[in-house]
Structures are given as structure tokens and as C-alpha cells.
Design a protein around this nucleic acid. Structure first.
Lengths: 218, 218
DNA sequence: CAGAGGGGACGTACACCGTACGTACCTTCG
DNA sequence: CGAAGGTACGTACGGTGTACGTCCCCTCTG
């Protein structure tokens, strides 16, 4: 058995979360999975909160960015956003942990740097770049939360058939009519839909800032 | 002392969450606050999860929608989105609970109905209305999470001065340059910025769907 | 080689948690 | 009057995070 290590603890925690859900995590379970006493963990990790932070950081650091500087900035933004969403596929249950804790480590800073650079190169000022980035992050986080919040502890992971057929059609006419559409959700399709919208909005804003004469027709 | 009641329990839970944070909530604390035995709570509530669901539903049901059907649809969408964000002001700590649990009760369905109706009246088809709504929800939830995730247990509630002045300027040139902008965040301003972008994107999309030359969507 | 020092693994213990279960009351009905 | 049912309550069980003290082994020093 290899020696107990911070990395091994974090890996075991992630495995446990993916296997049994974020609620099932406990120091005792992790220690048991590692075949180790509970308190031995505390030689490598100050407390449970720090462990969850490490889990978030580890998951986040494994998103793979393949930035192609020659591509159009719209495509680069799209790819970066998609890379973020990938963690929902690789670590669906741990994503909840990532989302629930704010992150300020270099692991979380690296994507920020990439995104800001892309936006600056596209021609945005610093303030706009920051605000646009925040908008994208909010959208991505919200999307991940929908995609992952549907997964409490059950298997399989990617499902979303909440049937709301028993809704009052007079109180909720639109919901009733659109129930078939609301009931199912292709997360990838929805994500791309909103992402498209956001990118187009950014493109429009960039164009308007380049043409100081308003071209707003209609 | 009035009789113990589901509503009184939920209210006490919300008060406790707002006072001491979502982590501090426990059946024993709530019972103590109500001057009541712990198990008495279970005569009105099946378990803690159901109580948290009730908390989320109660908070959500208190957002005030003032829909003006004569206003432009863009403005109606904006106002509805703002109404959602208000819960982050009235119940900053409980917002985390709302966000962490998916909701399918009428309390959560009512805003959905309002939003879908607005989008349909604006001229969108059912499928687009649903996708656009999902995009907005993702953005709003993500924004709330940023605004509220900054608030673990401390006071005052609305703060966000994470100083990252000690970041390596060669590894993270953009982050280093924009540190003053990244360090502080006017949540209202950021929310409005992204909301503006989204609404403009929706407007563009609506216009394109009216002009028969572009790619038509469902 | 002996001895010392330090770090990691461990067991115990405490305070707290959610809640299943059994009990005592108090109101209402037959 | 007795019976029934709902509500408050106390106890108890198995779980949690972690502070603390102990023990072993490895390494460094003399």
C-alpha cells in the first residue's frame, strides 16, 4: 500500500463522491476506503472544508483547454465555455462541490486568464472584458447547476424526465402547453443554445463599440 | 405561545439561516428557537430535507412580480429577472438553499408561466421560448450563486473584497492588470450588464426570425 | 552502534447531528 | 363514562467532525 498522501486522499474523496453522491462524503468513509484510520487524514488536511476545496481545485484543474490562437475569437470563447461544461460529464457529482465553493486558487485563475486574454485580443476594454467574463461564468455555472442538480444520488447520472403532466392548465396555460418541451432537457443542446445567444450578443456589442455611429435599426 | 405549526417552523428555519448561515441549521437549533422539543417538529414535517424544500418554496413564493402587460417585452423580461435577483437581497443566506434544490412546486412554476407567456407574446415559438427561458434561468442562478457564495457565514452580507494582489504577473498578465476590476464586484451592476447583453441577444434573434433570409429556427 | 527527535498512524472521547420509537397528555366523539 | 386520535415530549441509536494523547518507525546525530 502506498503511503498516505494528500493527493491520494483527494482522489479517494472524488471517487467516493462520484460513486455515492456528495452527501455521502465523510471523513470516516474516506478513511475506510483508503484502509486507514480516520485521524490519519488530518495529518495531511486541516479539515473537511479544506478537503472539499481541494476536491474543487483538483476537478477544476483537470479541464483541458485547447486554445487555438489562430481561430476566430468567437470560436475560442465557445471552446473555452465547452471545456468548462465538460467537468459536468467527467465529474458530474463533484461538479456540485465545485459550484458550491468559490475558488481563488491558481487552478481557478488559469481559465480566467485565458478568457480575459481572448476577450482583450478581440478588442474589448478591460472593464468590458471583466463584465463579459462574469456574464459567461454566471451562465456556465447556472447551466452546470441545472445539469447536475437533477442528479441527487441516483443512477444513471444524465437524466431529466420530471413529468409535470398533472399541472393545472387554466392556472398555467403556457406550462401546460409546453410541458412536453419542459419535461425533457438535452443539456448539451440547451447549453449550446444559450452559449450561441451570448456569443452573438457579445459580437454585436463589439461591433457597436467599433462603430461609434449607432446602427441600431428597429 | 401560539401552537406549533408548519408555517412557524419554516419561518424559524429561515430566520435561523439568515442569522447564522445555512450551515448552522439543525432540527435542534430550530426547536430551541421555538422553545419546543426537537421531535415535536416531526409532527408537522416529515424530515429535514422536506423542511429545506419548504424553505426554498417559501422564499421563492415571496418574490414580487409586477408584470405590466402594456410594457415592451424587453422591459418585462428585465423586470422579471430583477424580481428573481431580489431574493438575494431579502434572503441572502437562504438563497443558497433555494439554488441548491431543484423545485417543481407551483411556487416555482408561477414565474415560469409568467416568463413563457411574455416570450410567447413577444413572438417566439414554444421551443425557442423554453430554451431562452432556460438561458435566463441559468444566468440568474449563476449570478445569485456568485453574489451569495461570497457570503459563507460572516457579516455584513454584501461584501466581496478578495484581494488577489499577490498574483504572479508573468503567469497571469491579464489577471494582474485587471486585478483592481476583478477584486471588487458591484453585483447589481454586473447583473444588469449581463442581463442587458442577454436581452439584446434575444432581441436580435427575434428580429432575425422575422426576416426570412437567415436560418429559421423552430 | 546507541540515543534522540520528529512525523505519521492510530484510538479514544466529546459534542453534535437526524430521527425511530415509546410515552404522556389533552381534546373530541360515541 | 370510556375510547380514539393527535400533539408534545424524552430517550436512544447510529452517524458526524475533530481535539487530544499515545505509539511506532524512520532518520539524523554523536
Amino acid at each position: 500500500m502506498p503511503p498516505l498522501t494528500r493527493a491520494r486522499i483527494v482522489t479517494a474523496a472524488i471517487d467516493l463522491i462520484e460513486r455515492e453522491g456528495a452527501d455521502a462524503i465523510s471523513m470516516r468513509r474516506i478513511a475506510a476506503d483508503l484502509g486507514v484510520g480516520v485521524m490519519s487524514l488530518y495529518n495531511h488536511i486541516p479539515n473537511k472544508a479544506a478537503l472539499l476545496d481541494a476536491v474543487a481545485e483538483t476537478v477544476l484543474s483537470q479541464i483541458s483547454f485547447t486554445d487555438d490562437p489562430s481561430a476566430e475569437w468567437t470560436e475560442r470563447v465557445r471552446i473555452q465555455a465547452r471545456a468548462f461544461r465538460q467537468i459536468a460529464h467527467h465529474y458530474p457529482r463533484s461538479t456540485m462541490v465545485v459550484v458550491s465553493r468559490q475558488l481563488k486558487s491558481p487552478a481557478g485563475l488559469f481559465p480566467v486568464e485565458r478568457a480575459l486574454a481572448t476577450l482583450r485580443e478581440a478588442g474589448f476594454g478591460g472593464e468590458d472584458a471583466v463584465q463579459i467574463l462574469r456574464t459567461f461564468i454566471a451562465y456556465i455555472i447556472g447551466s452546470l447547476l441545472r445539469e447536475v442538480g437533477v442528479t441527487p444520488t441516483f443512477a444513471p447520472v444524465h437524466r431529466s424526465d420530471v413529468h409535470l403532466t398533472d399541472v393545472d392548465p387554466v392556472l398555467f396555460p403556457e406550462v401546460g402547453t409546453l410541458a412536453p418541451l419542459l419535461g425533457v432537457c438535452d443539456h448539451e443542446e440547451s447549453f449550446e443554445y444559450g452559449l450561441d445567444m451570448l456569443i452573438r450578443a457579445v459580437a454585436v456589442q463589439l461591433q457597436e463599440s467599433k462603430e461609434p455611429k449607432g446602427s441600431a435599426r428597429g
